[in-house]
Design a binder for these strands. Structure first.
Lengths: 253, 253
DNA sequence: CTTGACCCTCACGCGACGGAAGGCGCCACC
DNA sequence: GGTGGCGCCTTCCGTCGCGTGAGGGTCAAG
């Protein structure tokens, strides 16, 4: 019943090393409740629960000290997590600025070498886009999503676009596969594809809530280009995708 | 002319500590080209360039070893920079996933513990979200337009879809032509293409007001499939189409 | 010639473990 | 009842990228 596990077993099942468990024991973060007469560490169910918490917190980048105080209960966990979240977001911003800096240097680097017509087209296109971006933002750029999207797409290279397109096709393929196999739009497969779709947008463009995702889904059925593309892939796919996205949003509500 | 700088000056201008420079010297990553008779480190312009590279690489979280091999490695500066850029983007993605994980955990923390007044405030703040959702529903939800569209698309034959697709391509071509010829998104050509787009949707799908057309336009920039498709046709086209539609809506207001 | 800012070289410390050494415990098989 | 092999124990030193002194030399200004 109350199976006790040794370090090795615990390490394997929780994806940490024995040394790490020793370390947690040393610093008093997680000491096994029992020992065999020979001194073997024995971890109880409660120990394992605690370990699970430690492992997840660690994956969020918290220090062992922070994890410790979280487990001792001083300071709400939510507060800690929000702080951590802020720190990560700040880092993201910093990296974005870094990308801008790299792009600037790349631009200078490219200018030293004679630009090919292809590159000129790129540069011209970018300049063009930026011009309208500025104007557009002045007039309509009030939504958060648009600003995020604009900021991020500016940094996408042609290679990025290619990758985005490829990823999009993969998501489409997943939808088609789910539909072809007769699974309903509320099936896990369909919803997973929907979630993948959402995550892709979130990764490359802007933070997409499930609610807003619903809006996109409706668009897919409503817009001819989109619908035609989907219907070309498989009849009924547009509506299927729409329903899958709604189902996925329900699932995450 | 060739001003040489001492550690302190270099440290200040590059935002690193003196100790860090000493360390880079110790490990042979960046040794100043010269020294004064008294042993003071003197950094030349070339040294500083190298340092700039080191600093940027380091900000990406690369180890000193990795930075070293990159600097020793045979590769053009542009190649370096592109690698650097990819690394940053990857890191950004990773951090985004981390934020997601933190958010998920935050959600669980909030649900498990009885809500304090502070948290209640947070939740009430999320009432914002409900408001947002109501607004989204109003804009994108189960309006007449969507129902109309859904009803109509069900009756479309494969031949219809093919025709819709062809018409859509024609509209796209009009947009591309306008963009390529250097016409602004507010030009008559661009706006006409936008109007053709609207009419097409109206005939095949549902009554599309200019106001609602704006919503579609924003989606073109916001959704990767659309954006990627448009960007494949011509860089900057997605934003161009969006702006043209808005301009057209302004014209008809 | 002193003052104070700057520079030098050791050299130890940290956080979160990795890894090896040297030895004991446990189980299976002969 | 040996014996081999694996797992466990503790101890201790190594790693990475520096921070932070200690103890002392250098340099320009007053």
């Amino acid at each position: 019943m109350d199976e006790m596990l040794t370090v090795g077993q615990v390490a394997r099942t929780y994806g940490v090393t024995v040394r790490t468990l020793h370390h947690y024991d040393e610093v008093g973060l997680l000491s096994p409740s029992e020992r065999t007469p020979a001194g073997y560490r024995l971890y109880t169910g409660a120990d394992l629960e605690r370990l699970a918490t430690v492992v997840t917190y660690r994956r969020l980048g918290l220090s062992l000290d922070e994890v410790g105080s979280l487990l001792r209960g001083d300071g709400s966990a939510a507060e800690h997590l929000r702080r951590q979240r802020d720190a990560v977001m700040e880092k993201v911003d910093e990296l974005h600025r870094l990308v801008d800096a790299i792009d600037a240097r790349l631009g200078r680097e490219m200018n030293e070498t004679p630009a090919t017509s292809e590159e000129l087209k790129q540069i011209f296109g970018d300049g063009f886009k930026d011009e309208y971006r500025a104007e557009a933002q002045e007039r309509w750029g009030e939504t958060d999503a648009w600003q995020q999207s604009a900021a991020r797409t500016k940094r996408h290279t042609p290679a990025d676009w290619e990758r985005i397109r490829a990823e999009g096709e993969a998501v489409n393929a997943a939808f088609v596969a789910a539909l072809r196999s007769g699974k309903p739009a509320t099936s896990a497969e369909a919803m997973d594809a929907a979630e993948a779709h959402r995550v892709q947008i979130q990764t490359w463009f802007y933070d997409l809530t499930h609610e807003f995702h619903r809006g996109l889904a409706d668009m897919y059925v409503a817009d001819p280009r989109f619908t035609a593309t989907y219907e070309d892939l498989a009849p009924g796919l547009a509506a299927y995708v729409r329903d899958a996205i709604h189902a996925n949003a329900d699932r995450h509500a």
